[in-house]
Simulated scan of single mutants.
Amino acid sequence: MKRILHWVVKALTAFDWPLLMLLVLMTILGMTVMHSAVGGTDWRFADQSRNFLIAFIFMWVAAMMPPPLLMRLSPYVYAMGVALLLGVEFFGETSKGATRWLDLGFVRIQPSEMLKISVPMMLAWYFHRHQGTLRVLDFLVAGVLLAIPFTLIVMQPDLGTALLVFASGFCVIYFGGLSFRLLAPIALAVVVGLGTLVYYETDICQPDVDWVVLHDYQKYRVCTLLDPSSDPLGKGFHTIQSMIAVGSGGLYGKGYMMGTQTHLDFIPERTTDFIFAVYAEEFGLYGGVMLLVLYAVLIARGLAIAARAHTQFGRLLAGSMSMMFFVYVFVNVGMVTGILPVVGVPLPFMSYGGTALLTLGVACGILMSISRYRPVRT
C-alpha cells in the first residue's frame, strides 16, 4: 500500500501545475474549435480526443524521466532518428509526391517528427559536455549535427518540418553562446535576399525560371504569397480564402458554429493547417488576440522553467522547447494571414493530427521534467 501511495505521489508531483493548467485550457479550446470545424462530433472529433489522450500519456511519461536520464539518452535518440531518416531516403513510402513515411512492418511512422525533439536534445547534450571550453570549432560541429537531419528532411521534401527542426536546433546553438556578431552577416543576407525576391518577383516567378534549391511547388508557394491573385482558383486559393475568413470575423467574430467561410467549405484544410482561419472567423480579433496571449503565457512559462533550470542541459533544452512553440504559432498564423508562404505547419493544440500532438506532448513533458528536477547534493 505504501509503495502504491508513493508511486501516486510521485506521479502527481511530476507535473508542473501552472503549465498543466494552461495545457488543459488550450485542450478545451482546441476541441471546441475542432467541433465547429468538423461541424459536429464525427470521426475526426473522436480521433482528436483520442490524440489528446495519447499525447497526455506521453507527456506524463516524459515528465517522469529526470533530465540526467534524458541527457544520457540524447546521443542514442539522435542517432536513431538520423538512421530512420536514412531509411526513409532509401526505403520510404511516397504519398502525394513526398517520401516521408517508413513502414516498419507493425507500424507506419514519420521519423522527421521525432527530430524536432531529438535534435535539440543532442545539441543541448553537446553544449553541456563542452560548457566552459567552447570554441568556434564546437559551434561548427553543432552546425553539422543540425545540418544532417535538416538536409535529409528537406530532401523528402518536407520544408515545414525541416524549418521547425532547424529552428529548434538553432535556438540551442544561440542560447549555447553563439555570438550575435556571427549572426549579423546572415541576417543581412536574408534581408537582401528577401528584398531582391520582392523587387524581381515578376521576372523570377515565370514558369520557365528554375529556382534550383527549391522544388516547383515550393517556388509557386512563395510566388503565390507575393501575389495571391495571380492564381486565385489554384495555388492562391488557400491564402485568399483564409484571409477572407480572418477578415470577415471583424472585432467580435460571427459566433460559434456561425462561420460562413468554414461551413460552406471555402476554407481548405480547415481542421489542420488553416484552423486558425476557422477560429478567427468565429471569434474575431478579440478572440484571436486572446489565443495569442495564451500562447505567449505558455512560452513565457517555458522560458521561466529554462531560467530556473539547474543544469546547462536543462536550460538549453527548455529554452529550445519554448521557442519551438513560438515558431509553430508564428509560422502557422503567418501563413493563414498571408504574410508567410504555406508550408504545412500545424497550430499547437488546435490543428487535427496525432503526430504533431504527440511531439508537443513530449516537449511539454520535458519542460515539466526540467521544472521539477532538483539535483542531489553530496
Rank of each mutant, 00 (worst) to 15 (best):
228 P>S: 15
27 T>K: 05
370 I>L: 05
322 S>L: 08
250 G>S: 09
303 L>E: 08
376 V>A: 14
179 S>K: 13
165 V>M: 11
80 M>A: 15
197 L>Q: 04
183 L>I: 04
52 F>H: 11
195 G>T: 09
90 F>G: 13
134 L>N: 00
130 H>K: 04
138 D>V: 09
172 V>M: 02
306 A>Y: 00
185 P>Y: 04
299 I>L: 00
282 E>M: 09
22 L>I: 14
54 I>R: 05
181 R>Q: 15
4 I>F: 11
307 A>Q: 14
264 L>C: 07
142 A>E: 06
64 M>L: 15
317 L>H: 00
59 M>D: 03
264 L>S: 07
183 L>F: 03
212 V>T: 14
286 Y>C: 14
41 T>S: 09
38 V>S: 12
187 A>P: 02
81 G>N: 06
313 F>T: 11
150 F>E: 08
123 L>I: 07
331 V>M: 08
210 D>L: 03
294 L>N: 02
126 Y>D: 03
204 I>E: 14
275 I>E: 09
264 L>M: 11
50 R>D: 01
212 V>P: 02
71 M>Y: 06
144 V>K: 00
348 P>E: 07
268 P>G: 13
343 V>R: 02
277 A>R: 06
103 D>T: 13
10 K>M: 10
282 E>S: 11
358 L>Y: 00
127 F>R: 01
19 L>M: 09
42 D>I: 05
362 V>N: 03
48 Q>E: 12
300 A>W: 12
360 L>E: 10
14 A>G: 13
328 Y>R: 07
208 D>Q: 15
148 I>K: 04
329 V>F: 01
330 F>V: 14
102 L>G: 02
227 D>M: 04
284 G>E: 10
290 M>D: 12
146 L>E: 01
172 V>D: 06
374 R>W: 01
344 G>A: 05
264 L>V: 03
170 F>H: 06
100 R>F: 02
28 I>M: 14
192 V>S: 08
